[in-house]
Design a protein around this nucleic acid. Structure first.
Lengths: 227, 227
DNA sequence: CCACAACGAGAGCAGTGCTCTTGCCTTTCA
DNA sequence: TGAAAGGCAAGAGCACTGCTCTCGTTGTGG
């Protein structure tokens, strides 16, 4: 019993340790981290790592899922402490950015260019939607209490694709509101990525949080939240 | 004279050919393309490539500059054929997206995660700003003719960082208008990246152009353009 | 015409992901 | 309790990588 659990526990600890070291290597080598170097850091043969992850891509998948969950968790935690939709929106956005600033390479792993030759397995789909769903819920709640700006309904073929999704995740909320939330989400992620990927160099260098706050409020307006 | 040009011409052609093959490899291997494989495709020794590019990063830099110029050129061309600010905005945006869809890996190279260990040299700065500057000019022109929505001026520390930049590139245009244009630019790039990086999977699959058109108009509103 | 620089090829170094074999040691079950 | 089974780590090995160095060759400016 406890003996049987020993193996499993050791295995789980080892798996976590590998991921932890891999995350450190992510910071210097990005997505093409070296499995051999990770193994070296752990004082084990590279082949031994394959007992825990079938391939380097499998290790990456694990890191990706963890990253989605971490940023989702951070945003949800922050949002839980706010009591108006706008405050929740701002709290979630700032939390996401702060997590990204603290873990830039993990952000790049999930919102940056896809790793070449790497196809995201199904396990990543659900964690990947956490932040967007949180924003969606925030807007849905605001819509229910009538503080979302009234706008004409969606037109065009893409509306037919978006409507079932809107109905599934946020029943009762018009697809138009969801579309605007998605647009706002794109803007937020774009802002974070541009900052992290160094595209803000030589422009806003000091007050990046303030700049992001401005962006975040613009996104809120875009989503229909009345400031 | 003509003999002197021979070497130079052959060198220029060879350089272009290497870049061309490298661009093809970019499509399958992304930023960690193999210099050796490129050399093999060209029927030359890998060491010979080093006569043209000092390192793989140098090759990447050349590709990055070309990519910035290509998307900038595409957007400018499209914008030139439009005669109202809104039309110019939409034309530039769609042109950028279409270029990105046609050259997804080059888009990833310039707007995706930074290549680990790669520091963008100064040569990339100017081409990198072409699209944003085009959008800025479009909005500045609209502002001059009075069709930009009037909004309160910027506040906060970042405003002081943004004002000199706004004044330098678009004199007479308030920093607030520039900030909103940047926000719109972030949203556009975010929308393109999300589409290209596969994050739209299982949502909008068919009418992506229509969806992007919606995003683009939302961005225009964000920038203060009256639809 | 000739010294020189540009050039291509090949060998070589240190590193990579991944596989396969070998031996150890824990778990499991008769 | 003892033996079969299986998880596990290690090491060798394969084909690959970026990059350097050396060595002949070839085009070029003085």
């Amino acid at each position: 019993m406890s003996a049987a659990n020993l193996r499993a526990r050791v295995r789980a600890e080892m798996t976590e340790e590998i991921k932890s070291v891999a995350r450190r290597h992510l910071a210097t080598d990005g997505a093409n981290l070296s499995l051999r170097a990770v193994a070296r850091d752990l004082g084990m043969a590279s082949s031994a790592v394959y007992r825990y992850f079938a391939s380097r891509d499998d290790l990456l998948t694990a890191l990706i899922i963890d990253a989605y969950d971490a940023v989702g968790e951070a945003a949800e935690q922050a949002a839980a402490g706010a009591d108006s939709p706008l405050e929740r929106w701002l709290a979630a956005g700032h939390a996401a950015r702060e997590w990204a600033v603290a873990n830039p390479h993990e952000w790049a792993l999930i919102y940056g260019s896809p790793v070449p030759g790497y196809a995201a397995p199904r396990d990543t789909v659900v964690p990947a939607t956490r932040v967007l769903l949180l924003l969606g819920r925030t807007i849905a709640e605001a819509y229910a209490s009538g503080v979302i700006v009234e706008r004409p309904p969606l037109t065009g073929r893409f509306a037919e694709e978006l409507e079932p999704i809107a109905a599934a995740y946020h029943p009762g909320v018009p697809a138009r509101v969801i579309a605007d939330t998605i647009a706002a989400f794109f803007q937020i992620c774009g802002a974070i990525s541009f900052e992290l990927f160094g595209q803000l160099k030589n422009s806003v260098e000091e007050d990046r949080r303030g700049f992001f706050d401005y962006q975040l409020r613009a996104a809120a307006t875009l989503a229909g939240l009345t400031l």
